[in-house]
Computed example of a mutant assay.
Amino acid sequence: MIKHINALVTTTNEAQPLELIQIPLPELGEHDLLVKVMASGVNPVDAKQRSMAVAAGATRVLGFDGVGEVVGLGEKVADFNLGDRVFYAGQLSRTGSNAEYQLVDARIAARAPETVSVEAAAAMPLTFLTAYELLHDHFNIKMEARAARGKRLLIINGAGGVGSVMIQLAKWLGMEVIASASRPETVAWVEQMGADHVINHRDDYVPLVKSMGLAPVDYLAILHTPEPHIEAAAELIAPFGHIGAIVEPAAPLEVRKMKNKAASLDWEFMFAKTNADFEVASQGKALALLQQLIDSAQITTTLTERVHGLDAETIREAQDRVASGKVMGKLVAIFD
């Protein structure tokens, strides 16, 4: 029986914020899977949580996206078997995927896609759930092929992890997609993901969108710092339209221009459901849909970069690179 595991934990040293040590394996809960971790996706939240933990002197095992093999089952787990390969996006309150083994609530996991590598699968859960919940839970779009045919979506920061999968999901839903990108390589990437139109979010894009005959838009997703884009969003959104955001603003937002359009501003935070124990199983069901979409080639992985090893310096550098905003798609750590 496994009692201790190797894991990367946060330290109180800003210069060396991660350390590989042995820690006790938490007790298996009745709804838990014990997963031998094979790969872990790196997200902006990793560096943010690392900085908070170091400042607070807290010991945390980070890593949220994960893919691995089920090697243990809680007594109330009915939908998985030993040996299943699963993927999931984890929880803020539990030991993360930067470890040899991880306990995962079975309700937020699904069987991993069979047609792609473990690292390709590990790139997807957190960003897909963010895109899925924004479109389905907030924008009230039914998750069926072509269910949003005739609707128009503008995505600010289309080349990031969430934007890359949101473009694909929106196209599966039948939407016309405008995505923003600011460099030649990111323009090419969002076009590869399926965007119908590309704009530069560093320009004054409101007159451009209007001149292209693409305003108003039914839905608008701000997948970056919202302050520079909130007034443009209010200008471009359709009456009774939905504006979604995923990044906490540093200052109050000017939202008064939305009022006369009766437009809504929706906040998406992928961990909100597990933090509040609210409709937790919906995340496992969403990932089951993602597995089907990947295995039927309706959605492709957003994996673009790989690193190897459960190593403190390797993972720190990967977290910092993702936090810099310079990674297109997703970076994944493979634990060989």
Rank of each mutant, 00 (worst) to 15 (best):
Ala106Ser: 15
Arg107Val: 07
Ile108Tyr: 10
Ala109Trp: 09
Ala109Lys: 04
Ala110Gly: 12
Ala110Gln: 10
Pro113Thr: 00
Pro113Asn: 02
Pro113Cys: 04
Glu114Met: 13
Val116Cys: 09
Val116Met: 03
Ser117Asn: 04
Ser117Glu: 05
Glu119Ala: 14
Ala121Leu: 00
Ala122Val: 04
Pro125Leu: 03
Thr127His: 12
Phe128Asp: 11
Phe128Trp: 06
Thr130Gly: 08
Tyr132Asp: 05
Tyr132Phe: 15
Glu133Gln: 07
Leu134Asp: 13
Leu135Val: 08
His136Asp: 09
Phe139His: 04
Asn140His: 15
Ile141Gln: 06
Ile141Lys: 04
Arg146Gln: 12
Ala147Trp: 00
Ala148Gly: 01
Gly150Asn: 00
Lys151Glu: 10
Ile156Phe: 08
Gly158Val: 05
Gly161Asp: 03
Gly161Trp: 00
Ile167Trp: 05
Ile167Phe: 08
Ile167Cys: 11
Leu169Val: 10
Ala170Tyr: 03
Ile178Thr: 03
Ala179Ile: 02
Ser182Gly: 15
Arg183Glu: 11
Glu185Asp: 14
Glu185Cys: 06
Val187Ala: 06
Ala188Ser: 15
Trp189Thr: 14
Ala195His: 12
Ala195Cys: 11
Val198Ser: 07
His201Ser: 14
His201Val: 07
Arg202Asn: 14
Arg202Thr: 15
Asp204Gly: 10
Val206Met: 12
Val206Ile: 03
Val206Asp: 09
Pro207His: 00
Leu208Asn: 10
Val209Asp: 03
Lys210Gly: 05
Ser211His: 14
Ser211Val: 03
Met212Ile: 02
Gly213Lys: 02
Leu214Tyr: 07
Leu214Ser: 04
